[in-house]
Design a protein around this nucleic acid. Sequence first.
DNA 1: GACCTTCTATTCAACTTTGACTAGGGTATG
DNA 2: CATACCCTAGTCAAAGTTGAATAGAAGGTC
Lengths: 213, 213
Amino acid sequence: MSAIRLLVLGAVRRHGRAHGYQVRNDLEFWGADEWSNTKPGSIYHALKQMAKQGLLHAYESAPSTAGGPPRTEYEVTEQGTAEYFSLLREALTSRDKMDLLAAGIGFIVDLSREEAVTLLRRRIKGIEGWRESVTAYYKPEEGPEQLGHIGEIMHMWVHSADVGAEWTRGLIERIEAGAYIFAGEDGDPFEGVLAEEHENPQEACGSHGGEPA
Amino acid sequence: MSAIRLLVLGAVRRHGRAHGYQVRNDLEFWGADEWSNTKPGSIYHALKQMAKQGLLHAYESAPSTAGGPPRTEYEVTEQGTAEYFSLLREALTSRDKMDLLAAGIGFIVDLSREEAVTLLRRRIKGIEGWRESVTAYYKPEEGPEQLGHIGEIMHMWVHSADVGAEWTRGLIERIEAGAYIFAGEDGDPFEGVLAEEHENPQEACGSHGGEPA
DNA sequence: GACCTTCTATTCAACTTTGACTAGGGTATG
DNA sequence: CATACCCTAGTCAAAGTTGAATAGAAGGTC
């Protein structure tokens, strides 16, 4: 599974209502086009698929206010919100797939501080388990160097997993030390969304509240 | 670009002639199914595409010697060999995409020792350049912590790139110290291919020689 | 010998990703 | 005021990926 659905759901959710181009710009702003597959086609495809599956509700063809073709706007449904949190939790515990993890970190503050830490700890457990199974599998009969240069591949993966675990521990520490504002806490929640030119100021403050779960 | 073409070309090349199931087993043996997309469908698709593009030559429908449906065998063409080395060089210099790098390492001994080192050094240069551009882009006006938790994402990528560069330096050292047998050197080249049950012993020794370039 | 499992070998439909393309409108330039 | 260029917004065909399904043969077992 790629990170695109999580990214798109998260972007739309932050706006309350958004069209494809807005999502695209946000993801670019976050640098997601560098570390994930956020080509235009993928974004529009994800929007359409998720609309078809009821995760998003599509408002057809609002005429563009700034040139270009008419645009379709989307809103996250209840079902979509559930999926969002499910994907988010999955992303934060995933061992492989740096892009998933990155997307998860981007939205981590939508969870409570405790849950964030719990999930990150689970991630470390996952890495450690994987590490054991891999090193067990690859240290068979005839000495360590019977693998030749192929051994380098395994070392690379194990090493990078170790570093990932170490980095995660650091993040947990920072979070436990009080860094950042999480869901349900006082202070400005970090938005990190590109401002829309204020065409309809009175519509800009719909509270799209926290998770029910 | 994914690693599958390189992996498939490399696997077929090592056998001289191979059918899809053989390739699949090799990739599994190398653990490539863990770190790359080597599902059966992808392998057969890659074989067919590359045959269509003239990188492989297909020998239609050799009847299976061990049960199952008849199988199609493939051989790497001259054009395919050129593509193989091109992909291999690209893989070893790629900054992102761990799976590409892993595949590249798997076939690195098909290059000369000097070229291997050169490419790995180029890889480090690439990482360093990328690092600079990223940190420049993400250290803008209002202090470092204006990014909020989004900064964690950048730190993660930069950190993992640094670790990747460091690991590459270690590999270069080992190679320069004489580890492994590279193309054109004395000693058994590492094969790491699953032995075929010797059905046609006299066909098993076709020399599929080194690169012309 | 009927049945079940395993191994061999591949195909297929559904889905996702990619990169190039379309097209309207604004804006600067000569 | 024509033309070139960029920004907005999205579509599309081709390619790649996935997971499940298919199907023949061999081997065990009751």
